[in-house]
Design a protein around this nucleic acid. Structure first.
Lengths: 248, 248
DNA sequence: AATTTCATGTAATTCGTTACATGATTCC
DNA sequence: GGAATCATGTAACGAATTACATGAAATT
């Protein structure tokens, strides 16, 4: 998870750990913060795995002005070269081709396990790097999961004998409402995605171009979009195709 | 976290692990599932700590019908007595007085750290066990946190140079909107809570009855409710005091 | 010169998961 | 008597956190 986020940010720009943390925290500001205690080890792992590497910063600073100041020159040396690697200088990282592959792999992996809220958001934030089909799959899996949860939550409440106290009830109602909103938001995204895909593959005589056997783990059954899997007030009337926004 | 949830459920009803898991999963259905691999160890810890204990089920089943069946009697024995504790019989737990204390303690603890969504929801679900002031504190701290996050997210986006692609943008907008809704939901809860507290402590001559020095960790400054900590569109016009629901 | 902020890292701990292993009960 | 379900537990592992330790650069 952290690896994916790091690689994603590093793809766009070379960064060092400290700055990376700031961006992650802000980017994940919508989900959570990241601590140095997890960031640096993650960076080390990635470096060991050959997914990222410290860049040789070309000395934009005057190349050794030879001021005679031993400590100054030493500091400059440490910052830019060897010692910086092992010592305390700033280490600016970049992704390697190996890292690009890893990124793709991590992004495509459909863990779908618990604590997926962050996972999903993270993947969506990097959705532009996904092939269109995988993108749709991501959105649809998420939608299915939310619909499922909603149904279960409602069943649980209806099945449960004990009436809830006001706090639990309020929590339940608010959560339910939020999930419904999430679902219809996903519906809009999915609709936009479909529109977009139709536009880019316009005069295709075959409706479904038979998905090439790439990822075996995802979507064995066709999407079957508007056939509300749960009958209970899931699709909010109409998907409201107001926003026709296309990525970037 | 898990301990708190277990104690809270066990407070209302004696349960065994398997059933506990089912209820937890459903209750946390709004947040997440729980695995046996974490549930049983948690139960063991609580038992070791003397917070819960296996109940001596009074033999509602006919007390040893003396059928001559050795294995049958052995099984019955195991289910109800000694061996059941160490062996494989159903173990029904109840909270001890010690456990009640632990529950109060865990519930009152204001961890406020990361992964607090679940924490907050769990605490709110048990809010009826909190003293009114602590309840208000819980809601207000949550609100403050969301407001703070919202402000930071907006600042981050405005500060960031790179324009976001459509997915990130949509994610950001949706998250922002959700958070705003959460905040105004909290506003309603807080307002209801205040109304409720005024009603129960009606003709008090002193407005603020000088909080007794109990918890040092929370709310050193007075609540200062409607003074929007972040100026940016936080309070949604009016708190809309439509629902006057009081707990249970 | 001192303090703050930037910057990198390690160690111990927390809290949970998945996978595995086993036994008891119920139903066909 | 065999399968599904109920029920309890252990072992190995995972991902992140907090606390600690250190040092370099910028600011006052």
């Amino acid at each position: 998870m952290l690896e994916l986020a790091i690689l994603g940010l590093l793809k766009e720009q070379e960064l060092h750990g400290y700055e990376l943390k700031r961006r992650l925290t802000q980017m994940l500001g919508l989900f959570s913060s990241v601590s140095f205690g997890s960031l640096y080890p993650a960076l080390s792992r990635l470096e060991t795995a050959g997914a990222v590497q410290a860049v040789d910063t070309p000395p934009a600073t005057p190349p050794i002005p030879a001021t005679g100041s031993l400590s100054g020159e030493l500091a400059a040396f440490r910052t830019r070269h060897g010692a910086a690697r092992g010592g305390r200088g700033k280490k600016v990282y970049q992704v390697t081709p190996r890292g690009e592959d890893l990124f793709e792999e991590l992004l495509a992996a459909d863990t779908q396990s618990s604590e997926d809220e962050r996972q999903f958001r993270l993947r969506l934030a990097f959705a532009r790097y996904l092939p269109p089909e995988a993108r749709l799959g991501l959105l649809e899996r998420r939608r299915a999961l939310l619909v499922e949860r909603l149904a279960q939550a409602r069943a649980g409440v209806r099945g449960g004998r004990e009436r809830l106290d006001s706090y639990t009830r309020s929590l339940f109602e608010h959560s339910t409402e939020s999930t419904e909103r999430d679902i219809s938001w996903l519906d809009r995204l999915i609709a936009a995605e479909r529109t977009q895909q139709r536009r880019n593959r316009p005069p295709g005589p075959r409706r479904r171009p038979r998905p090439r056997g790439v990822s075996t783990t995802a979507a064995p059954a066709p999407p079957e979009f508007p056939s509300t899997p749960a009958p209970t007030a899931t699709s909010p009337a109409a998907p409201a195709p107001s926003r026709k926004d296309v990525h970037s």
